[in-house]
Nucleic acid binder design. Sequence first.
DNA 1: CACATTTCTTAACTTAAGTGAACGAGTTAT
DNA 2: ATAACTCGTTCACTTAAGTTAAGAAATGTG
Lengths: 192, 192
Amino acid sequence: MQDLLFDFISKYISLTEGEKNAILSLDIFRSIKKGTILLKEGQKSQDEYFVLKGCIRKYYIIDGEEKTTAFFTEMEGLTPHCAINNAPSDYYVSCVEDCVLLISNADMGVEINSKFPKFETMCRILSEELLAKQQINFDEFKTSSPEQRYLSLIQKRPDLIQRVPQHQLASFLGIKPQSLSRLRARIVEKKS
Amino acid sequence: MQDLLFDFISKYISLTEGEKNAILSLDIFRSIKKGTILLKEGQKSQDEYFVLKGCIRKYYIIDGEEKTTAFFTEMEGLTPHCAINNAPSDYYVSCVEDCVLLISNADMGVEINSKFPKFETMCRILSEELLAKQQINFDEFKTSSPEQRYLSLIQKRPDLIQRVPQHQLASFLGIKPQSLSRLRARIVEKKS
DNA sequence: CACATTTCTTAACTTAAGTGAACGAGTTAT
DNA sequence: ATAACTCGTTCACTTAAGTTAAGAAATGTG
């Protein structure tokens, strides 16, 4: 499981054995059961999550309804807004499946960044990459219809459709579960 | 105009006179006329844009139609995806108004980051902040209707509604210009 | 100034998403 | 084993966005 992490890091920077040990000594690997809520609305937390295995989701509760806005799977990380500005969280984070996560906090980040400057370089590159990806996703979302979004999701993240409940996918696509059902039926209809 | 930049930077890190001069010596201030296209689809460019004054917009041309997905105004920066992965750009960037911009490129970034490590720290913090803001925006977009989005835009960026043409705002809100007109009429109707 | 172009609005019609309700299948709890 | 709950689907109905077209207002150009 550690290899997964170091393989990922090696795409960005090279680590010595000493540096690897320094990271391992932080002891931030966590195995977490499906359904566990990692962060609740209103809560203040410094924790950041990086998924080594499994899937976590971010959701709001608006007028009593769950609105899922993002999923994070293998080698994707979530830094909640509340960890940055130290304000109460607006949303929840929970495990869609049994997970292995890296759970780090800002203090550890500061410590490791000051010890290993190249770590900061990696974090900056990662943020910039993620930001660019995020912007492309947002652009695609804005410029397409729910049906197009669903078809594109089938292409780009086919695993999500399997591992995530439909009603969570629906709000991820910006629509209601009933609309997703109908939309799927419409697509099947068209094919035939 | 330089003070605008240094005031902004001072929110994140403190600069010595020497460092300020090093930045000024890069000579990256540019005055640009309204309507100028800074980046075209298909073009490869390393340039990054930071708005000191004015407004730039990012748009796609899909099936012959302009789809505006983002505006950047004072103290906001755009690092096009093509500048990161060195691939042809998917979109256009143009000036909505006469602008004063900082136009930098990746090489200059590398140079200044290696000379002044604290600059890299600022860039990382800026990316992370921007990423978090971006995610909140995306979440809001997903969880609300076009009408709610428009009302929220009036609250959060009232200037945009004044300085940007309606049809560009429409695609920014994820709808057609005609729908925005109708939606506005509907809101006025409700008020009375 | 007059002409062309762009921008915004309105209208009628079509299409798709939201809403409320009901149903069956599968799961969990008692 | 039965009851309670969740989840996905379907249906009928409502509401709003997409589409096509037309015209008015504002802007830019020769």
